[in-house]
Design a protein around this nucleic acid. Structure first.
Lengths: 208, 208
DNA sequence: TCGTGGCTTGACCAAATGGTAAAAAACATC
DNA sequence: GATGTTTTTTACCATTTGGTCAAGCCACGA
């Protein structure tokens, strides 16, 4: 018996890794800007610098690319919430989470818009993930926040609504960037101001 | 000289009014769910209960329908903000505005998603409106809020960031409804809870 | 250096898409 | 009921779209 089981699929070559990465990056561009149905394979292929048939050599279909993107995204999206630990100082844990989410909006706006597009359009392809991965984590963290509030460490409120508020505000800066840029033309200053505002807002809200 | 100038276009017939309304309503359904590029004329026509050529008898093109929707929407969208008056009690004026926005999210979720889709996708068709209609109103109301804060009637903060937070949270319930429904299955209870949470949040934030 | 298997391409396809032209039907008005 | 106007339909078109296929290329290990 071999020490390690033979891999079901051979390990991908350098070329495969490179091209799959190029395709996913291009697809993120296009899907996040136009949504699933508004995106075209030709546009993704051109952005990736590959021919369309070549692209379909690496992915079975348009939907396969989209699903792969969403799966990867879901993990990255949950990570900051998972890092909120029961044994830290409650206010610091929550404000830390908020800061992490703000930085994600700044660093990965395309991912944020991809997710927003999918949800706005009724989450047709990510609904199972929402139920199986997000829901349990959401319930767990709600329970945790509730114990913190019961212990008088945080101002009492509905933990679910609190998380909604956090998500709404932090993602707004990525998703509605076009609007923010019109209303606050100096992007760098706007971001600095936003960081400070969001931290202050939730600090005031959460302090008992 | 006639008392009233002859109208450039004859007043629309009952049939025209009815069919244009049916088309715009169907288009709102489809555009808000799939975005501009993801929506198809066939789908809009079928939803409206008209043939595609018949629909194109009332509107010149797909883009014409979309633009008409966005124009009408912009007015409705600005109205609640315009109603925030300088001579009212500052806290009541702002909380009233927030309540109005929450009710709009509840009553017109399709309109909210139409707007969200357009902005997420870079506002290609509504950018002029954003600059010419939203920006002046935004600046005016920011100035008003600033005077209220300077007078000690409200806790001091960046008024622009405050408005962003209001928009983000209130629209979240319409735009991310699919996610909210997964995490809070009882929709009616969720809305009641949301109303209370949002009012409490901003009351606490704004009280000096 | 020579196969050989992974990678790439050009040509192609059926269906869908935005849109048009003209005739037919419905309607209003006299 | 004749007449002109508005509305609707039928048939159609060029382009785009997601996807296939067979043949060719090329990198790399023997």
């Amino acid at each position: 018996m071999p020490q390690t089981a033979a891999p079901a699929v051979k390990k991908p070559s350098r070329i495969q890794l490179r091209n799959r990465r190029k395709i996913l990056d291009a697809a993120l561009d296009v899907f996040s800007q136009h949504g699933f149905r508004g995106a075209t394979l030709d546009q993704i292929a051109e952005t990736a610098g590959l021919s369309k048939p070549n692209m379909l050599y690496y992915f079975d279909s348009k939907e396969a690319i989209h699903v792969e993107l969403l799966n990867a995204l879901m993990a990255e999206w949950l990570a900051p919430l998972e890092e909120m630990h029961p044994d830290g100082a409650p206010l610091d844990e929550l404000l830390g989470y908020i800061t992490r989410k703000m930085e994600m909006s700044r660093t990965y706006p395309r991912e944020s818009r991809l997710f927003a597009n999918e949800i706005i359009q009724g989450a047709p392809r990510i609904l199972p993930d929402l139920n199986q991965r997000l829901k349990p984590l959401f319930d767990e963290k709600c329970a945790l926040i509730r114990t913190w509030m019961a212990a008088g460490k945080l101002a009492p409120m509905d933990p679910g609504q609190l998380l909604f508020s956090i998500w709404a505000i932090t993602q707004h800066y990525a998703d509605f960037d076009a609007q923010v840029q019109v209303l606050m033309p100096d992007a760098d200053a706007a971001w600095e101001s936003a960081r400070h505002h969001v931290d202050t807002l939730f600090r005031k809200l959460l302090t008992p």
